Simulated scan of single mutants.
Amino acid sequence: MSDTQLTVTIGGGGVDDARTVVRALEDTFGAADQHPSGEHATVRVATFTGEGREGTGPTEAGALSAPVTVTVQGTPRAVRRASDTLARSFTARDEGAASGDQEQERQLLLEP
């Protein structure tokens, strides 16, 4: 597994909110390999597998229209970087984490 491989699952809000979350992560991880889509979907997914780069501060991703639940899953380093990026970009509340041998998962609630 690449050190920057990350899967992002976004629930709540609309497709524009999901795209706002992905834009915030692109500062750290580069362009997403898979973007959220589907106007009527209840859960949207984005993936990042590029080399990524170190984000330097909050991005200008935009504002959320509603609270969204974001689950980030990947290597411990990628999950930590994603969590830090989202916390700098939005009002975020940590909803819990789970760890495996090589992978980690963290859930955050992002509020407008």
Rank of each mutant, 00 (worst) to 15 (best):
T69Q: 07
S89F: 02
D101Y: 13
T59A: 08
G57S: 00
G57M: 00
T75W: 07
T75P: 07
T59M: 03
V72D: 00
F90K: 07
G100M: 10
T47R: 14
T69L: 06
T47F: 06
D84P: 10
R88D: 11
S65V: 11
G55Y: 10
R80I: 01
A92G: 02
R53E: 13
E60C: 07
S89A: 12
S99N: 11
E95R: 13
A82P: 03
D94M: 02
R106I: 00
P67M: 04
R77F: 12
R80A: 12
G57Y: 03
S89V: 02
F48D: 03
R53I: 06
A61R: 06
Q102F: 15
A63V: 15
G50T: 03
L64T: 02
E54P: 09
G74L: 05
E103I: 08
T71G: 01
F90R: 06
T49H: 13
G52E: 04
P76R: 10
G50Q: 05
R77H: 12
A66P: 04
S99I: 06
G74I: 03
R53P: 03
T56D: 08
P58G: 13
S83Y: 05
D101N: 12
S83P: 01
A46T: 02
S89W: 05
A66H: 13
E54T: 14
A66N: 07
T91R: 08
S89M: 01
G74R: 01
P58T: 08
T69H: 05
A98V: 15
G100F: 13
E51I: 05
G50Y: 00
G62F: 03
R53Q: 13
A97T: 15
A78E: 07
E54F: 12
A63K: 15
G62L: 05
T59V: 00
Q102W: 15
G52A: 00
T47E: 14
F48C: 05
S89H: 06
D84K: 14
E54C: 09
A92F: 03
D94E: 01
S89E: 05
G96W: 02
E60S: 13
A87S: 12
R88W: 11
R106A: 01
G55H: 13
P58Q: 10
A61Q: 06
T91V: 08
A82R: 04
Q104T: 15
L64H: 03
G55D: 09
R80G: 10
A46K: 04
G52F: 00
R93C: 00
S83E: 10
A87G: 09
F48Q: 05
E103N: 08
G96E: 03
T75Q: 08
S99V: 09
Q73W: 11
G52C: 02
G96M: 05
L86H: 00
G50K: 00
R106E: 06
E60P: 07
E105F: 06
R88Q: 12
L64S: 04
G55F: 11
R77S: 14
D84R: 14
E95M: 12
S83M: 01
E103G: 05
